[in-house]
Write a protein that binds this DNA or RNA. Structure first.
Lengths: 130, 130
DNA sequence: GCGCTATAGTTGACTACGCAAGCAATAGTA
DNA sequence: TACTATTGCTTGCGTAGTCAACTATAGCGC
């Protein structure tokens, strides 16, 4: 499934998730640390992941006026449209994977149970301005 | 949890699983291909995994009389006792991880649902002799 | 027997991470 | 103000794994 994503759109599953989180974030940008938290990666993992996405032009870096330590990862136009392309088929793949195996009720049960595992929810992430 | 396993016993989660599968196998030995299937690794992954376990003396290699292509991975005495050491605390860790979060009924549900995912069951693996 | 294909396993090159160490910038404290 | 601790990020190095290419053996059809 993630292999399919990569073949069809040249995105690893983490590339995809990174773009997705950025697209949902305020103004399409996130601090690298926060992104690391969402992706369950270490900061160095994020640095390397974004290296690739920057080279591909899907993401660019921006700085934060009020804290010069932070660099933002910002979704570019190209990144947004690449995500859009990929999400159609990916979401469909995920959906059918589950639909084949589970009924709606069972999906609810699963979601409810698995939701109790650690790291299954989103933390609130602070904005840059104080 | 797997970090704990590694800290306490010097075994990665895959080391542990490999020893476990061997301990359950007939005469404590398995063909490398079959082990690859159980661990969801490629054959080369298994080669590298067993390299480490062999160096540590937990596993040794044996050959198959009826098919000279196959090399067995065989659990050594040291491997069996290392597994025994590790399994006590590891099983306890896993148990408590789930007990904290789920009731018995919920665990049954989870097992039933997740059991439908691919690769969640054991294939039958052929023995060497025809 | 002879070729052909499939299977078991290993190896080299590569990737994706983590960890530890380090640099800047910030925040807390005296 | 100066000193220390903390935070955000990057970099060098090590590790676990994949893939593609390879060798060796097995088994088939003829």
């Amino acid at each position: 499934m993630s292999a399919q994503l990569e073949l069809d759109h040249g995105l690893t599953i983490n590339d995809y998730e990174a773009l997705l989180h950025l697209s949902r974030a305020d103004e399409g940008r996130m601090r690298r640390v926060d992104l690391a938290g969402m992706l369950l990666l270490t900061p160095s993992g994020v640095t390397r992941l974004l290296d690739g996405l920057e080279k591909a032009g899907l993401v660019e870096r921006g700085s934060c006026a009020s804290d010069r330590r932070v660099t933002y990862a910002i979704l570019t136009e190209a990144g947004a449209s690449r995500l859009k392309e990929a999400s159609g088929s990916h979401i469909e793949a995920v959906r059918s994977f589950f639909e084949v195996r589970f009924s709606d009720d069972e999906l609810d049960q699963l979601a409810q149970l698995l939701g109790r595992l650690p790291n299954s929810g989103a933390d609130s992430s602070e904005d840059c301005s104080p």
